[in-house]
C-alpha cells in the first residue's frame, strides 16, 4: 500500500507535477536511496520515449527561433554543482531550506520534541522535526496525507520501521503514533497536505497528491 503510493508520487515527480515541498521531499529521498533512483531513471527513460513518439506541433516561426538560438551568447560558465558541496542534509533539501542541519532554527514544542515549522508552501504544510531518542510523537490528526522522510535516526509506527531515506505515508484517518528509535535523535522532513478550504482545479490537484 505504502510502496504503491510512493511509486505514484515518484511518477508524478518524474512528470514534474508535484507541489514544490513534495518535489523536494522526493528529490531528497532519491539522493539517499539508489534503488529509488533506478526506478525514477527508468520512468524518465520512458518519458523520453514518449516525448519522441508525440505528434509534433509546428512552431510559430521555426526559422526565427532557430536563428535566435544559434545567434545567442553562451551563458557564462558558473560552477555551482550540487555535488561539489559537502553538506549534512542532502543537497536538494539544503537548496530548498537555504541552510544545513547546523543552522536549523529549532523551536521546542514539547520536552524532547523540536520542530522548525515553515508554514504553508505551495498549499502544503512543511516542517523539520527532531525527536529525542525513544520519544513518542504526540497524538495528532491531520486533514490530508502526511509524508515523513527520515534524515537521521529512525522511528517505528504500526506500519513499520523507518530509517534514513525512508518515507512514511500516513493517511488522514490513521493514528500512527510514531516513536523515535533509541540511540540518536530522529530528524526528518515532513510535508502535510493542508487543511485548505479553497476550491478550484489547482487547489484540488494540490490536495490530491496521490488520489
Amino acid at each position: 500500500m505504502v510502496a504503491e503510493q510512493l511509486e505514484t508520487l515518484m511518477a508524478r515527480y518524474v512528470a514534474g507535477s508535484l507541489p514544490a515541498p513534495v518535489r523536494v521531499l522526493i528529490a531528497t529521498h532519491l539522493a539517499m536511496k539508489p534503488e529509488s533512483r533506478a526506478m525514477c531513471e527508468a520512468l524518465e527513460s520512458l518519458s523520453g520515449a514518449e516525448l519522441s513518439d508525440l505528434q509534433g506541433v509546428a512552431l510559430e516561426d521555426r526559422d526565427g527561433m532557430l536563428a535566435r538560438i544559434l545567434a545567442s551568447e553562451p551563458p557564462a560558465a558558473v560552477e555551482k554543482r550540487r555535488k561539489d558541496r559537502d553538506t549534512v542534509f542532502p543537497a536538494p533539501l539544503v537548496d530548498f531550506l537555504g541552510f544545513d542541519l547546523a543552522d536549523v532554527p529549532w523551536k521546542t514544542r514539547l520536552p524532547g520534541y523540536k520542530i522548525h515549522d515553515m508554514g504553508i508552501i505551495d498549499g502544503i504544510g512543511v516542517n523539520l522535526f527532531n525527536f529525542r531518542p525513544d520519544r513518542a510523537a504526540p497524538s495528532h490528526t491531520h486533514h490530508g496525507l502526511e509524508l515523513s522522510l527520515v534524515l537521521s535516526g529512525g522511528f517505528t509506527d504500526v506500519f513499520g520501521h523507518y530509517l534514513p531515506g525512508d518515507i512514511s505515508v500516513a493517511d488522514p484517518d490513521v493514528d500512527h503514533r510514531p516513536q523515535a528509535d533509541p540511540g540518536e535523535p530522529c530528524i526528518g522532513f515532513q510535508v502535510i497536505e493542508g487543511p485548505l478550504k479553497l476550491t478550484g482545479p489547482l487547489v484540488r490537484r494540490l490536495r490530491d497528491l496521490i488520489g
Binding site: 505514484t8 511518477a11 508524478r12 512528470a15 507535477s17 514518449e50 490530491d208 488520489g211
Partner: peptide, 23 residues
Amino acid sequence: LLRMAFFLGKSHNEIAAETGLPL
C-alpha cells in the same frame, strides 16, 4: 494508465475521472 502518471503527472483520482474507470 502508468503513462498518465509519469508523463502527464496525473493522480489516481484524475486518471479515474479522465478515463471513466473506477478508482
